[in-house]
Design a protein around this nucleic acid. Structure first.
Lengths: 130, 130
DNA sequence: TTAACTGTTATATTTAAAGTATAACAGTTA
DNA sequence: TAACTGTTATACTTTAAATATAACAGTTAA
């Protein structure tokens, strides 16, 4: 698990952890059924507290990305819930300010969507680890 | 200035304010040279503190969206800085987690970019106020 | 059985950000 | 002079994030 955490960043550590794990699932560096470190091991590796890892795990579990078996450990969910109406609402809420600022700064619709397409590519096609 | 603020939301009030103003600039409901309420008036209208409005204004000024003349008030900047490398870095940092989660949830590149295109349209083409 | 490991829960504490409450200053305008 | 600007300063409360310990319940291997 090559995870980089920036302790100085504005973004909360547990959010960074969630994002890093989701990014690795998208890149297929983490595949369905793959295991994640225990909260204690992961916390020790990253030099952070056990509860911070646990908070990330609990939210990832709540959102359907991982399964937690009491003594078997943490595993990537083979059936991550598809994007539904609720998720699209969340996505809209988060994307709208980014699109607004980009438009204010002169980016066209084509420029913005091309930018997204390129990022999407990097996240799903790049790398040899998957 | 029809601005809606949700005092119960997780998103900080000054962030909501910044976003609402940027969205209205993108929609051309706010045009170059248009004035914004004074910090005191705006705060009173929204039922919040003067400093919260001031914080939003200071950041919008810092990012080039507004001009502040000491006694003349606050005005939409006619020359909002274009998207540069630094902005694209920020945009990448904010978009990557959204794209990763969308990919995990089965959205394709086409579906995601279409979603963005639609949102972009709503923000720049919709409404009669502009 | 014992020891070592899981996730989970509880409690207490520290730190930083967000927001509020007042107050004052300096400059402009009617 | 009075009323309005943005700005700055100080003090306070509330909340979220993160840490520090400790313990519990269940599993697994020695």
């Amino acid at each position: 698990m090559l995870i980089n955490i920036d302790l100085q960043a504005n973004e909360p550590i547990y959010e960074q952890l969630k994002n890093q794990i989701m990014i690795r699932i998208a890149r297929k560096e983490l595949k369905p059924g793959d295991g994640l470190p225990s909260v204690r091991i992961f916390a020790a590796d990253l030099g952070i507290n056990l509860h911070t890892v646990n908070k990330a795990y609990q939210q990832l579990k709540q959102e359907g990305f991982i399964l937690i078996h009491r003594q078997k450990g943490v595993v990537i969910n083979p059936e991550i819930p598809s994007a539904d109406g609720e998720y699209e609402e969340k996505l809209t809420r988060l994307l709208r300010p980014l699109i607004a600022e980009s438009a204010c700064r002169g980016m066209t619709e084509v420029e913005f969507t091309s930018f997204c397409r390129q990022l999407f590519h990097q996240l799903t096609e790049e790398g040899d680890e998957g």
